[in-house]
């Protein structure tokens, strides 16, 4: 187990280095010109050159990259000579748009993304696993057909469509839910759990419609496969009740693929739910990422890319470790 984790840790670091380099390269040779954006309306070649120096873009490509990377491990100074400012560890640079510490921007955005992610994940997992299992147990009966039908609709509804429909119905027409406000970022804040819950309910539902549908499908097919296994027949031959059979024997094996999927989706979602955050105007990581990319804000884009990659890689490692806990056959290998 320790060897496994060490190996994965090394791989994680290497992978992050590669991803950072690729992102940096793409950005550098891409069409965005942050200097032009930074120097404003009345721009002269001289001012552009000044801006380039201030942003550190006058240096050679590799040296820019190395400077950036060194900042991740210890702080560095940023800005034009004479007007430098300190960027503390871990330094992801300063936003080209606002000159704010990128780390601070992320720190502000993360609670929003977490709020959206946590509720959506709980919602779609419960709905997906419950209905997927139910469909498998009622195979080819009406219940199964209704659930599979609903899942087919859900999986073909894009988030922008669901999101806007939800807003239209529950906020504009029925007026039973508030429009998402940026003031609430935690269930422990002054708005309380209820305020937080109601504030993020619509984004959760929008995400959960799509993801539940996928989880229903995976759960159903995996449970069907498991219910047909020989060991289920053995469980029945022991005299176990149907409930004990399904929970202790069926779900234990049948939900393994769901665990994998869930781990990866959590990793994905922590890197920002771009569409959902856009539609509900939640200033989370995904929302920030879109703004940063549009504005050619290299430090912010880099940081968000690394953050998202980090979450996905960690999710992968966690999934593998969990797998070893669930399935003793994996432990041996």
């Amino acid at each position: 187990m320790i060897a496994f984790l060490t190996r994965r840790l090394v791989a994680t670091v290497v992978l992050l280095a590669v991803i950072s380099f690729v992102t940096f390269t793409l950005f550098h040779f891409g069409p965005a010109d942050p200097a032009a954006a930074a120097c404003g309306q009345e721009c002269t070649p001289e001012r552009i050159a000044e801006a380039r120096v201030a942003l550190g873009m006058d240096k050679p490509f590799l040296s820019q990259y190395l400077t950036y990377m060194s900042g991740l491990f210890h702080g560095r100074t940023v800005g034009a000579p004479g007007a430098e400012s300190l960027c503390q560890w871990p330094c992801f640079g300063k936003s080209f748009q606002t000159n704010e510490d990128v780390a601070a921007v992320l720190e502000r955005a993360l609670p929003y993304t977490l709020s959206v992610a946590v509720g959506a994940i709980v919602l779609w997992t419960v709905v997906g696993v419950t209905f997927g299992t139910l469909a498998a147990l009622r195979r080819n009966k009406l219940t199964d057909k209704l659930i599979v039908g609903a899942a087919s609709v859900g999986v073909s509804l894009p988030i922008p469509v669901t999101g806007l429909l939800l807003l239209l119905v529950f906020v504009s027409t029925l007026d039973v839910l508030p429009f998402t406000t940026n003031a609430i970022t935690s269930p422990f804040g002054p708005a309380g759990f209820d305020g937080w819950f109601l504030n993020y309910l619509l984004p959760w539902v929008a995400l959960a419609v799509l993801f539940s549908a996928q989880y229903i499908r995976v759960t159903r097919s995996s449970m069907l496969e498991t219910l047909g296994e020989d060991f289920m027949r053995t469980a029945r031959a022991k005299g176990l009740s149907k409930a004990a059979m399904v929970v202790r024997h069926g779900a234990r094996a049948g939900l393994t693929p769901v665990v994998t999927m869930l781990g990866l989706d959590i990793g994905l979602l922590l890197g920002g739910a771009v569409l959902t955050e856009q539609i509900f105007s939640v200033p989370g990581v995904g929302f920030t990422a879109v703004r940063a990319a549009q504005a050619g804000d290299l430090p912010l884009t880099m940081a968000i890319t690394l953050l998202a990659a980090f979450f996905i890689i960690v999710a992968n490692v966690v999934v593998d470790a969990v797998y070893a806990v669930i399935d003793p056959r994996v432990r041996a290998a």
Partner: peptide, 24 residues
């Protein structure tokens, strides 16, 4: 169900697939 396993029990052809892989 109350009789299965208690009064009448069964062993199967392939014990590997007939046992649950995740339980000791």
């Amino acid at each position: 169900r109350a009789w299965r396993g208690k009064k009448i029990a069964m062993i199967f052809q392939d014990p590997l697939s007939a046992m649950h892989p995740f339980h000791s």
